[in-house]
Amino acid sequence: MQDKGQAGGARRASHAATVKTRPVADKAHEQALQHYQSAVQLMQEGKFERARVAFEKLIPTAPLELLDRSKVYLAACERNARKSDLVFANVGEQYDYAISLINTGDYEDARDQLEGILKKNAKADYAHYGLAVIDSMTGQAEECLEHLITAIELNPQNRIQARSDSDFQDMADDPRFTELLYPETL
């Protein structure tokens, strides 16, 4: 009989321990939620590096309902922090960086870099050409043609380069593309 009493007492003790830990668990959950909200606020304010650090601290202990979102926001913070850290000595370096992004398939960031070049110099034919390449590779035929027309108007050599550029292979069947590259056959 004594064993039953001791077992019952052990059950009561473990139940009491559970009851005592619930408020602690709720408090930890509440703190995690507050940390999450603070990190999101930092991100919205454009303080990506500080938000990144906050999300990194949160993720190991984040409740399941915040974990996936925290990871997505962490990736966004890392991406934006990298962008703001980029400093180019000249437009040529920025263009080279954009081309490296195209080559690795990071079309969104490459587009941002090329558009940044155009903000500095709207007549940068090579930036229009690069945007035409991105548009071709991402299936945006209209935009591709617009940028390629501008690139050729600014520098007729771009027409010759585009004729042998494999990045435009998706445009090869478009008659407007052919007319643009081979106007002498009309």
Rank of each mutant, 00 (worst) to 15 (best):
E108N: 13
A76C: 10
Y97H: 00
N103I: 09
L64Q: 15
A81N: 02
D106A: 09
L67W: 15
N80P: 02
V91N: 12
V72C: 02
S84D: 15
R79N: 14
L74G: 09
T61M: 13
N80W: 10
D85R: 15
Y107Q: 03
A89K: 14
N103S: 07
L66E: 07
P63K: 03
D68K: 12
L58G: 02
E78F: 11
I99F: 11
G105M: 12
N103M: 06
D85N: 14
V91H: 11
T104G: 11
V72M: 05
D109L: 05
K83P: 09
I102S: 00
S100E: 15
T104P: 08
E78S: 10
Y107R: 05
L67Q: 12
L58K: 00
E93H: 12
I59Y: 14
Y97C: 04
L74K: 02
Y107W: 05
R82Q: 14
A98E: 10
V72D: 04
R79S: 13
S70L: 00
Y95E: 06
K71M: 06
K83N: 08
L101R: 14
N90W: 13
Y73T: 08
E65K: 02
A75Y: 13
V72K: 05
D109T: 10
P60S: 06
F88I: 01
K71F: 12
G92E: 12
F88S: 07
E93Y: 12
T104K: 08
R79D: 09
Y95A: 07
P60D: 08
V72I: 09
V91T: 09
R79K: 15
R69N: 08
P63D: 07
E65I: 06
C77I: 08
D106V: 00
S70T: 02
L86H: 07
E93D: 04
P60V: 04
L66I: 00
P60I: 02
A81I: 00
D96I: 05
E93R: 01
A76Y: 06
Q94M: 07
S84A: 15
K83W: 10
K83A: 14
L67A: 13
R79W: 05
A89D: 15
V87G: 01
E78N: 06
V87K: 06
L74A: 02
G92I: 06
N90M: 00
I59S: 13
Y73V: 04
D109A: 14
T61E: 13
Y73C: 09
G92R: 09
S84F: 15
I59H: 06
N103H: 15
C77D: 14
D68M: 06
S84P: 08
S84V: 13
I102W: 08
A76R: 10
I99K: 10
D68P: 03
R69V: 11
N90V: 06
V91Y: 03
I102F: 02
K71R: 07
N80E: 15
F88K: 01
N103P: 01
E93M: 09
D106W: 11
L64S: 03
L67S: 04
L67K: 11
D85K: 12
C77R: 01
A76I: 09
N103C: 08
I102T: 05
F88P: 05
I99V: 14
T61Q: 11
T104R: 07
G105I: 01
V87Q: 03
D109I: 04
A62N: 02
G92T: 03
T104D: 09
A89N: 15
I102V: 05
A62Y: 01
L58W: 01
K71I: 02
T104Y: 06
L101N: 04
